[in-house]
């Protein structure tokens, strides 16, 4: 089961996730997006890509392979404090 959480402290109410989602999972309510149709989410994570504040969290989504990322980039990412 997919679960979506919105970090309201991080979110700035830009509404880009609402616009970009192909399945209209989100709805803007009082400057914060609320996932109203979670069962329609197919885990494309376009909302993660467009969110300027990384305010979205998904659970239960199949993490697709990303072998196109260099090992040295992964190493740097793991070492950023």
């Amino acid at each position: 089961m997919i679960e979506i959480r919105v970090d309201e402290n991080a979110c700035n109410g830009c509404g880009l996730c609402v616009k970009d989602c192909p399945m209209q999972v989100y709805e803007m309510r009082d400057t914060v997006p609320v996932p109203v149709r979670v069962a329609s989410c197919m885990g494309c994570l376009s909302c993660h890509e467009i969110c300027p504040a990384q305010a979205l969290e998904h659970r239960g989504v199949h993490p697709s392979r990303r072998h196109y990322i260099d090992i040295r980039v992964c190493e740097m990412l793991n070492r950023v404090i």
């Binding site: 192909p22 494309c44 199949h62």
Partner: peptide, 10 residues
């Protein structure tokens, strides 16, 4: 193709 995304495509 309905939608292409970073983690899954529909």
């Amino acid at each position: 193709i309905v939608h292409t995304g970073p983690n899954a495509c529909l």
